[in-house]
């Protein structure tokens, strides 16, 4: 019981990170119908920018201030990355055949990964724990369920970011434009919505969310490398598809599920097959629900 509670806490924390990345996948998919394969690498870029900011500010400012700066700088600069990637690799291919943007995105993913490897080296980079400590939630048979401050912080930050994000999508003109372009890009353009800007801003928002997730990953695990984008990206994409790609609540739900599956499998199953379990569950879910958990089921018009 206590053990399961601990796994639940760990799973939710991890799921929050996946969910944030998955939102970026699902937004881009919803608006231009492409898999942004480089999104996982934007997450990695965000984590590295966070690391660099933290390193630069260590000893100069207080730790909370440094962490806040890391989040903000990472989100802003990753947003610029998202914007630039869309302009360079995807916009010229818009309206083109569907395989071209996919290959371009895979190329972009390779570029980003190797760009970081070339510029910052192939070594793993570690930071000391910045927010140590936690509270014991429960004791049972000598097993102590720990809820670390970092886990609380991750859940709080994720929920705050998602709240702001939900507000943007539902209440602001930008959100309305995004939803309009998602429904019907041509019609939206006819009604005077600047689709190019809207799509650019979608990429910027998605990248900023991924960067927040990246900094949280850095703070939680303390170690990052140039290669972390691939695995996190695939997991988050899996989360987005599991939840029903195109559905924003679905992305968060999918992320949470993937996090929980991973945590519980690590706790009870053979650890080596953790990722295989995630992928198998994805395949099984899609066999019965071909549009994911919350995805709209597309009825083919005949």
């Amino acid at each position: 019981m206590a053990y399961a509670l601990q796994l639940l806490i760990n799973g939710v924390t991890l799921g929050m990170i996946y969910g944030l990345i998955a939102v970026g996948y699902t937004m881009v998919y919803g608006i231009i119908g492409m898999i942004n394969f480089a999104h996982g690498d934007v997450f990695m870029i965000g984590a590295f920018i966070g690391l660099i900011v933290l390193t630069a500010l260590t000893g100069i400012t207080s730790i909370p201030l440094a962490i806040a700066a890391a989040f903000i700088v990472a989100a802003v600069l990753s947003g610029v990355y998202g914007f630039s990637i869309e302009r360079v690799a995807y916009r010229p291919l818009r309206g083109s055949f569907r395989l071209a943007p996919l290959i371009s995105a895979i190329g972009m993913s390779i570029v980003l990964e190797n760009y970081v490897q070339v510029t910052q080296g192939a070594l793993d980079r570690a930071i000391p724990p910045l927010l140590p400590g936690g509270v014991a939630v429960m004791r049972q048979h000598g097993f102590v369920v720990q809820l670390s401050f970092m886990q609380v912080a991750i859940v709080v930050v994720t929920l705050a970011v998602l709240a702001v994000f939900t507000w943007i999508v539902t209440k602001t003109p930008l959100g309305r434009a995004m939803r309009a372009v998602e429904q019907d890009a041509k019609m939206a353009a006819l009604l005077g919505i600047d689709t190019n800007t809207t799509i650019s801003l979608t990429f910027v928002t998605g990248a900023a969310l991924a960067a927040v997730a990246g900094v949280m990953f850095l703070l939680y695990y303390g170690v990052i490398g140039f290669y972390i984008g691939f695995n996190a990206g695939i997991k988050a994409f899996t989360a987005a598809v599991l939840g029903g790609i195109g559905s924003l609540p679905g992305a968060v739900l999918g992320g949470l599920l993937i996090g929980l599956i991973e945590a519980f499998w690590s706790g009870y199953g053979p650890l080596a097959y953790k990722d295989a379990a995630v992928y198998s569950i994805l395949a099984i879910v899609l066999m019965f629900l071909p549009s994911g958990l919350l995805g709209r089921h597309e009825v083919e018009k005949v």
Partner: peptide, 13 residues
Amino acid sequence: MLIFGLALVAIMV
């Protein structure tokens, strides 16, 4: 690999 990725993007564009 950096050049490989750039080439992939460029050829597609």
